[in-house]
């Protein structure tokens, strides 16, 4: 009895402490000092552990994946994107003309810090940790992308690690624009609710816009490029889910990036001086 009481008292103390923690972090909006502490505390460890687990994880991915995209270039990704950008701009005359019209000064492009994914969140959340942090010039709310398209945005930054909220997370919402048009909408991650994390939900803000499967989406861009810079390819519309007569059009979108097999990603640390519009999308 005596012992039981003490045990229960300890249990109550621990539970109350946990609830206090929850309350604190809830009041501070989820990202509080606890996150920073966790980043500083676990970041280096995870960095080290990442070296061990990355080959293992890569092995598992190699089983079912074409590794060609995975091998992609920690060092050359930046160049690749730039080359892609310029190639697209150069190869398509109409795009060049469009650029001339709409993109008065699009030559800035993105400035990217490349990083590797070293850890991932739990079952319910689509978050990853990358091995670059404030020491690499990364700040919160910067856009993360890879060679295929939009990945997500940085939510918290540690000295050597950062946490990225993937666009597929249920709590992530990205403003998008239908490529080639000015129709804008928002995509929301489907989370783990349905069809896995390979599907995003699109909702167009205009009820009269025409939406067809196969339409490509790019990010619309946020003010100041945070949390999302403009012009990053997002995905293609696969199916229209809106009912006739609904106020907004909804659709399912297949993202360009493979959120379950992220390897090398880039963090945009400098916003292009002008919206690249659809030029980045050309490859898709």
């Amino acid at each position: 009895m005596h012992e039981n009481r003490r045990t229960r008292l300890a249990l109550a103390v621990l539970l109350v402490a946990a609830i206090a923690l929850i309350t604190l972090s809830y009041r501070s909006g989820g990202t509080s000092g606890a996150n920073g502490a966790g980043n500083s505390l676990f970041g280096p460890v995870e960095n080290a552990a990442g070296y061990v687990t990355r080959p293992i994880e890569g092995f598992f991915h190699a089983i079912g994946h074409d590794d060609a995209t995975e091998i992609a270039n920690l060092q050359t990704q930046n160049d690749q994107l730039r080359a892609q950008l310029s190639r697209l701009q150069l190869s398509q005359s109409d795009a060049r003309q469009l650029n001339k019209l709409l993109q008065l000064d699009a030559r800035g492009g993105y400035k990217i810090v490349a990083a590797s994914v070293i850890a991932a969140g739990g079952s319910y959340s689509d978050t990853v940790t990358i091995d670059a942090g404030s020491k690499d010039g990364i700040q919160a709310d910067e856009t993360v992308l890879n060679g295929n398209g939009l990945v997500g945005t940085v939510t918290s930054v540690g000295p050597t690690t950062s946490t990225v909220l993937l666009a597929s997370d249920a709590s992530a919402t990205v403003g998008v624009r239908l490529a080639g048009t000015n129709t804008i909408g928002a995509i929301t991650g489907a989370g783990t609710t349905m069809a896995g994390s390979d599907t995003l939900r699109l909702r167009l803000f205009s009820a009269s816009a025409t939406l067809q499967p196969g339409d490509a989406l790019v990010t619309f861009g946020s003010v100041g490029g945070r949390p999302y810079v403009a012009g990053v390819p997002v995905g293609t519309v696969t199916s229209i889910t809106s009912q006739p007569g609904s106020l907004t059009q909804t659709a399912l979108v297949t993202p360009f990036a493979d959120f379950s097999g992220l390897g090398v990603v880039g963090v945009v640390i400098a916003v292009p001086r002008a919206d690249p519009r659809d030029s980045v999308l050309g490859g898709h």
């Binding site: 946990a18 609830i19 923690l21 929850i22 972090s25 606890a34 996150n35 502490a37 739990g122 978050t127």
Partner: peptide, 27 residues
């Protein structure tokens, strides 16, 4: 058990790719 649960949960709450509120897992 409960000590390990609290500590382990707290560690999971703080380890970087965390998305939930700190203390949830510990609880």
């Amino acid at each position: 058990g409960m000590l390990a649960g609290f500590v382990g949960g707290l560690a999971l709450d703080l380890a970087p790719p965390v998305s939930n509120l700190a203390g949830e897992t510990a609880f």
